[in-house]
Simulated assay, not measured.
Amino acid sequence: MLAITVQTESGPALARPSAGELTALLRRIGGDDDHFAVVERIPGADQVFLQTWRAGAGPFATPGLDPQTRAAAEERARTGIRTGCWTAEEVAQGVCDAFDPDEAPVTVGQARRIVAQLWQERLAEQAQWPAETDPDRVARAFGALASQGLTALVNVTCCSGCALSEVAGERAEGDRGFAFFHHQDTAAAADGHGLSIRYGGYPDSGADSAAIGRAVTAALADVGLPVVWDGDPTKVIEVTPLRWHKRLPAGR
């Protein structure tokens, strides 16, 4: 038995195949909805794999991208990786989803290869970071807010509208208000634009939004983060300047 797993387009992963089983599997590659195989060692190494692709009875190949599409895919992958919030597989899927499959398709396999290289580069970068980074401080501040009776959510859903409609569903008993930032806020922070914090009081709690804002700014300041807010409860709280060095999640 070979110490590998093989994932194809059309079926479940095959673990520890014999040489004969692997040969038979590769010979069938090229049929309808069965164009590629991805091989990983057992035990696996993060972001280390082999992929091959074939159409019909043609030669096996590693599918490529034109330079313009590849550059755009790499930038999309970097954006996802910089947030530090997504697994490598989630970043790869996000790269695929960003392209029109009828115009400039990027396969999952192509996206995985792009992400694998950039992931390793980011791991090398973060090895030079200090023990505690600004995102760690943000997490500490939100932990403190949760202990103070606020629904404190980080990187929650896609945008303000969706977050505001969902935040009450995360409300714990006794929470009088909320504070959150969403995916777009995280991406902006990762791009160097600071982090926007949104907050408010639940209507049935009688909590004043300005008071919630003061609690949020105090928690951020307590962990050493710079805060920009003029006390107006209709305005978001900005954490800036901010260096968004959030470590990548473990695993794939």
Rank of each mutant, 00 (worst) to 15 (best):
A3V: 00
T5M: 01
T5S: 11
Q7T: 15
T8V: 08
S10Q: 13
G11L: 09
P12H: 06
L14V: 15
P17W: 08
P17I: 08
S18D: 11
A24Y: 03
R27T: 12
G30N: 11
D33F: 12
H35G: 13
A37L: 04
V38M: 14
V38K: 10
I42W: 11
A45V: 15
A45P: 00
Q47S: 11
Q47D: 13
F49G: 02
T52V: 14
W53R: 10
G56C: 07
A57C: 04
P59F: 01
A61W: 01
A61C: 03
L65G: 03
R70A: 15
A72R: 14
T79Y: 01
G84V: 06
G84Q: 07
T87S: 15
E89Y: 08
V91C: 01
Q93A: 13
C96Q: 14
D97L: 12
A98S: 13
D100S: 08
A104Q: 09
Q110C: 10
Q110W: 05
I114G: 01
I114A: 03
L118N: 04
R122L: 01
R122V: 00
A124V: 07
Q126P: 03
Q126V: 02
W129G: 06
T133R: 04
T133K: 04
P135W: 05
R137V: 14
V138N: 03
R140S: 13
A144V: 07
G149A: 11
A152I: 06
V156N: 13
C162M: 08
A163M: 05
V167L: 09
E170L: 13
A179G: 12
H182D: 10
H182V: 08
Q184L: 07
S196W: 06
S196D: 11
I197P: 00
Y199W: 07
P203D: 12
D204H: 14
G206M: 10
A210H: 09
A211S: 14
A221D: 12
G224W: 11
P226M: 06
P226A: 13
W229M: 07
W229Q: 06
G231H: 08
P233C: 07
P233A: 07
I237T: 05
R243M: 10
A250H: 10
G251P: 02
R252F: 05
